[in-house]
Computed example of a mutant assay.
Amino acid sequence: MLDTIALLLTGAVAAYLLWRFWGRYSKEKALYDVYYLMGFAVLLVSGLLLIFLGLGILKSPYVLTIATLIPLGISMGLTEEYFPKWKTYFKWFAAIGFVAIAVTSIAGLDTLKKIAVPLFHGVAGLVIFLGPFFAPKAPKGFWWVGVGGVLIGLGGIALAFLSAGSQLLFFSADFVMLILTPLMLLMTLAFTFGFVKDIKK
């Protein structure tokens, strides 16, 4: 029951953020809002799937692959908006990462997946974490996005190790399942606090 409540709240917050991004995109037509919309749309759908199908779907290689679009989408949005000199390179990095995670997950190449997922999830998480602190002319309070980056990075990498049958530090299967839904809610709230500042600037 608590998991369902947390997921419903996560979905509601994600839907609100999608509405805010769409409002800005409809006026400015900025590409970075498309990336943000992609990331949070996948987050919303993922939460709904967890509600209706249960946490067991996290073991699916297809779910792991699609969920990768959450950190990749948000990190591409940040580079597009605040670090335009690096955006082309990062888009290639994200595209290669998505393909690598998809192939290694769906084909069952566990050894390579243990490299690909932490690498690309980790780098995307670092961009989301550090980007707001170094972003030129970022609004006050935008650092909340960095907090969300820490949470999404830890959760994503831990889930990736579990899906490969391994454990990351103290992130056992039971522990990850215990904290997953509250972590998703806290992550989404942190992103919302930060991105609303960005939308209002």
Rank of each mutant, 00 (worst) to 15 (best):
V123D: 09
Y32G: 05
S105F: 00
G149N: 08
T10Q: 10
G73C: 08
K59T: 02
Y89S: 13
I74N: 07
D110N: 13
V34N: 07
I66F: 04
A100N: 04
A67M: 04
G149A: 13
G77R: 02
L130I: 15
A41D: 12
V45K: 06
S60L: 02
W143H: 12
G149K: 05
Y35T: 10
Y36N: 14
V117E: 15
T68C: 03
I51L: 07
V123Y: 06
A12C: 08
T104F: 00
P136D: 13
A95E: 12
P61W: 03
V13E: 05
I115R: 01
F120S: 07
A15P: 09
K27A: 13
G122D: 09
Y35S: 14
I74C: 10
W86P: 03
V117N: 10
F129E: 07
L55I: 13
V117F: 13
K59V: 00
F90T: 04
Y35G: 12
D33T: 08
A12L: 14
L49Y: 02
Y25T: 07
I74M: 09
V145I: 15
T111L: 10
L112Q: 06
E80K: 09
T111G: 09
Y25C: 05
H121L: 11
K87M: 04
I115K: 01
D33Q: 09
S60I: 01
F134G: 10
V127F: 11
A138R: 02
G97Q: 04
S46H: 05
V45H: 07
Y32H: 15
V45S: 09
K59L: 02
G56E: 05
L53Y: 14
I115W: 06
G131Q: 12
G23L: 10
F142P: 05
G23D: 11
F98N: 04
I106K: 01
V117K: 13
G47W: 02
L112F: 15
G149S: 08
K85C: 10
A41H: 11
A138Q: 03
V13L: 06
P61V: 08
G125P: 11
A100I: 02
L130F: 12
T10I: 03
S46K: 01
G108I: 01
G131T: 11
V42P: 00
A15E: 11
F90S: 03
